[in-house]
Design a protein around this nucleic acid. Structure first.
Length: 927
DNA sequence: TATTTCACG
DNA sequence: GACGTACGTGAAATAC
């Protein structure tokens, strides 16, 4: 690495700090700290700098501010900027601390006397052209744009290259100065031509090309503006000079002046504390290792969700122990095994973990099992390590036969991490794990569903400050990764035994917290834990998929896609990749000259679906072709091509994985494959459901809750009108329309019903008038009128929404019907967008989460009933508000009568729950 | 690896 | 001159 590598390809970002300072001050609400000192502009500028650094990850940057005092322009023209109102005190007071913060963060800060920030940027832009991006909200800077210097407005996300300048202003970047001089600038007191604004300036420049040419032909301009032009001739050169940004200054700036310095953490802590920048202090604390025990940190604790502060204040018994205090035994003899099993029996419960050949639960074979009885005391029982020179191990089949009664003993409690997996794997060996008493993954999930992950390594690191041995550490990674049977016992034992040991410690850590919270404990014990074996059975049962039918659909899709490709090539006049946004951009916006409706944050013209749809509506052929192609390509690659590959060779069925600790709201999720997003909305998509079929002699039964989230809203809000609508079995969208529009049910038009439906959905999502307006394609005021009308008619709903937000603010979390908590740390965020996002989540989570609770309870009830009656019907799929069963023909009548019954009465609400069922040979028919 | 797009409730 | 805008997921493809 030599210093000659100064020629970097990474961008140099030049930030017009002064322009953002003003914009942020005026655009943001007047935030203050508790002492009443204004802080809004500081927040705005710092956030903007963070965003730039994150988006571009530049190696070099310059944050440029105006220096106080006169500049050459004042000498040139004493009246320059004389019209500017003097800076408000609230803004002036923010400047010094802001500059100090920027500097302490390590940003290269430039403040050069005698010149304006613009000129510093202009000069640097020229010097480093080729990799310069200027970040500014000042339109005058557009004059600096060329092929090698681009502009980004970080507040509005508008990106300007030469074409962008042309599109935005109507003149090329080289003519921006002419344009500005003609218009003048009232605020900066730059004189222009009277009565000439942007429209006239553009028109003149289009006709006469340049300012100098306009001045030469000034005599030709007619009317009043012509006179004004001639009157302005004398001062136009001065105006031109005033608006011209200098790019040839001799600046005392070395390249080193443009690189980041390490942040001065102490200074930052002091500044952030002084101005009460809490989220920044938080971020600072995360950086600092170990977390500093300053007063500030303690202060922060009060703001954390209760579960978190509980974690921090209670010292778990199983605090980290040095390795020497752990005793991990490798069980290689029958005597050793017998001793352990005896102790397990006596203990009544134990932590257990299986090691296997594969993560795929259908194919995995057991390689070994580990046990733990108390913290630090664990054993690994290797059964199938088969690397060259592996020690002789106990016979797997014999040991499993000996273990079977223990593992299947419902009264011998098992403690594990994600025991669903262990249950699935043990079933591969004919053992049905019972007595699933504690699952640390679910304990963690119930205590805080918003934690990013609930896997073993993360939980140990986060709660026990213990770094576990990672699988990759002992098995390697990539394609050379060993399967566990190939791992040497010397390494396998500490790894496997640690799993059981620390699972137990995690349980010791979580359990007191759960016991302190009745709601969470019941949710965990009565819903989440009982669901584990049910999900395990659903996964292992799988669903039959007709591979031949999907293959046929793939061929048909391919044919149609080929036609679309051919047509597209003709329209575009060239060959290109229809799946590449980049190539589409080139052809759309450069070759065919379609209008750029929107740009991505990185400044590229967007080719997102809505943009394409809009273009298609404008009558352009190519966007429509590409949209259809995209849709079909998705169906083919994700479903018709991929699903057949995922059919298990042994069972001929597809086995998904349900994840019980992923979705923050309490829903399940499904992966490999995701069977919760099989198409249904389009005819082509729907055909895929025809490939989900019933076994010979069976039918599929689909049972789904009708409008469960709206019903929950009615229940939670207690709104009389809404409750009545459901009690009378009305079409709820029609009833809403009748109420909102003040007409009879019969008089509701399809459009009114559609609007009412959008409002109802919007309510569930915590809508804004803006969102509703976009959904309905009406203007904001009209949407707001609908919302107001709705809330007038359904005052209970309005009160509920307000209470929910208030509760979220007061408690820091919201709850579902069954006490599932969802923490919302952002509910008090200073940044409005962040805070509003949390508010919408607060509205949505109780409804989505209660629906999740209810269907989980229903699954437990249905499973219990099927077992009690020894039926052969299997529950095979769950899709949030729908359950799918594979039913032998002779059970069909009984099952179809009883299952909706069980689902409807899974809970008792103040509204009836409605369940609709369908039966068919395939999933499509069953709907 | 991150982003964009699109499938579902 | 003006924050960003409906909730929750997972998978595939392309761009970086």
């Amino acid at each position: 690495m030599s210093s000659a590598s100064a020629v970097s390809t990474k961008p140099l970002i030049l930030v017009d700090g002064s322009s953002y300072l003003f914009r942020a001050f005026h655009a943001l609400p007047p935030l203050t700290n508790s002492k009443g000192e204004a802080t809004g502009a500081m927040h705005g500028v710092l956030n903007m700098l963070d965003k730039l650094r994150k988006d571009y990850q530049p190696e070099q940057m310059a944050v440029v501010f105006d220096a106080p005092g006169k500049t050459f322009r004042d000498d040139l023209y004493p009246a320059y900027k004389a019209n500017r109102p003097s800076m408000p005190d609230e803004l002036r007071q923010q400047i010094q601390p802001l500059l100090a913060m920027i500097k302490a963060q390590g940003y290269p800060l430039l403040i050069i006397e005698g010149v304006e920030a613009d000129d510093v940027i202009g000069t640097l832009a020229k010097e480093y052209a080729g990799r310069v991006i200027i970040s500014t909200s000042d339109k005058d800077m557009a004059q600096l744009v060329d092929e090698r210097v681009h502009l980004i407005n970080t507040m509005s996300n508008h990106y300007l290259d030469p074409a962008g300048v042309n599109a935005k202003f109507g003149v090329a970047p080289e003519r921006i100065r002419d344009y500005l001089a003609l218009m003048g600038d009232a605020v900066d007191n730059v004189p222009g031509v009277d009565k000439v604004g942007p429209k006239t300036a553009v028109k003149w420049l289009q006709d006469y090309d340049s300012l100098s040419n306009i001045m030469e032909h000034a005599a030709e301009f007619k009317g009043k503006v012509g006179e004004n032009l001639r009157a302005a001739l004398a001062h136009l050169p001065l105006s031109y000079e005033l608006v011209t940004i200098k790019s040839d200054l001799a600046l005392p700036i070395e390249p080193e002046g443009l690189t980041f310095s390490p942040p001065d953490l102490e200074a930052l802590r002091e500044l952030y504390t002084r101005y009460e920048f809490r989220s920044r202090l938080n971020a600072l604390d995360k950086l600092a290792l170990p977390p500093a025990n300053t007063q500030v940190t303690n202060l922060e604790l009060k703001e954390l969700p209760s579960s978190l502060s509980l974690n921090l204040s209670s010292t778990p018994e199983s605090s980290p122990q040095p390795v020497s205090e752990r005793q991990y035994q490798t069980i290689l003899t029958q005597t050793e095994l017998d001793q352990w099993l005896q102790r397990i029996q006596q203990a009544g419960e134990f932590a257990v973990d299986t090691e296997t050949t594969s993560l795929n639960y259908m194919n995995a074979q057991i390689v070994g099992i580990s046990f733990a009885l108390q913290a630090g005391e664990a054993a690994y029982l290797p059964l199938a390590h088969d690397y060259l020179g592996a020690p002789v191990q106990l016979n797997r089949e014999a040991v499993l036969a000996q273990l079977k009664p223990l593992l299947e003993d419902e009264h011998l409690g098992k403690i594990g991490q994600n025991l669903k997996y262990d249950r699935n794997v043990l079933l591969n060996h004919g053992i049905c794990l019972a007595g699933i008493k504690q699952d640390t993954m679910l304990e963690s999930y119930v205590l805080d569903s918003t934690a990013s992950r609930h896997d073993f390594d993360t939980l140990c690191a986060q709660h026990l400050q213990h770094t576990t041995i990672h699988f990759e550490d002992i098995a390697g990674k990539g394609k050379h990764q060993l399967s566990f049977n190939q791992v040497a016992l010397e390494q396998a034992t500490p790894y496997a035994a640690e799993d059981a040991d620390y699972t137990l410690r995690l349980h010791h850590y979580f359990w007191p917290q759960l016991q302190a919270l009745d709601g969470q404990r019941l949710l965990y014990q009565q819903i989440e834990l009982p669901l584990v074996p049910i999900l395990s059975d659903m996964e292992r049962k799988g669903v039959k998929v007709d591979a031949l039918m999907l293959a046929k659909q793939s061929r048909e899709l391919e044919q149609r896609m080929n036609e679309l490709v051919e047509q597209s090539y003709q329209v575009a006049g060239q060959v290109f990749n229809l799946a590449s946004p980049k190539q589409i951009q080139e052809i759309f916006f450069e070759k065919l000259g379609l209008p750029v409706l929107r740009k991505t944050p990185k400044g590229q013209p967007s080719t997102a679906e809505d943009v394409l749809e809009e273009l298609a509506e404008l009558g352009h052929e190519l966007p429509a072709l590409i949209l259809e192609h995209r849709g079909l390509s998705k169906l083919k690659s994700t479903y018709t091509d991929r699903l057949p590959e995922q059919i298990n060779a042994r069972t001929g069925r597809v086995h998904t994985s349900y994840h019980q600790a992923v979705a923050a709201t309490g829903r399940l999720s499904s992966t490999e494959p995701n069977l919760q997003n099989i198409p249904i909305r389009t005819p082509a998509g729907r055909r895929i459901r025809q490939a989900f079929i019933a076994e010979q002699g069976c039918q599929l039964l689909a049972a789904d809750y009708s409008q469960i989230e709206l019903r929950i809203m009615a229940h939670l809000s207690g709104d009389q009108s809404l409750l009545a609508a459901f009690a009378h079995g009305l079409d709820v969208h029609r009833a809403t329309a009748a109420e909102v529009f003040g007409i009879s049910l019969e008089a509701v038009t399809p459009d009114q019903r559609r609007a009412a439906k959008a409002i109802n959905f919007g309510l569930i999502y915590g809508m804004s008038a803006f969102g509703l307006a976009r959904q309905l394609n009406v203007d904001r005021r009209e949407a707001q009128a609908y919302v107001d009308l709705y809330f007038a008619r359904y005052p209970g709903v309005k009160a509920y929404m307000e209470n929910t937000r208030e509760q979220a603010r007061a408690q820091g979390y919201v709850e579902t019907l069954f006490g599932r908590r969802l923490f919302l740390p952002d509910i008090k965020a200073r940044q409005a967008a962040t805070r509003q996002y949390a508010e919408r989540t607060a509205i949505n989570a109780p409804m989505q989460g209660s629906a999740a609770d209810i269907i989980k309870k229903a699954m437990i009830a249905v499973d219990r009933w099927l077992r009690a009656n020894q039926l052969k019907t299997s529950m095979i799929l769950q899709v949030h508000d729908e359950l799918v069963f594979e039913v032998p023909l002779d059970e069909l009548a009984q099952v179809q009568a009883k299952i909706p019954e069980l689902m409807m009465h899974a809970v008792s609400l103040s509204v009836p729950l409605l369940v609709e069922t369908g039966v068919g040979d395939n999933w499509d028919e069953a709907h």
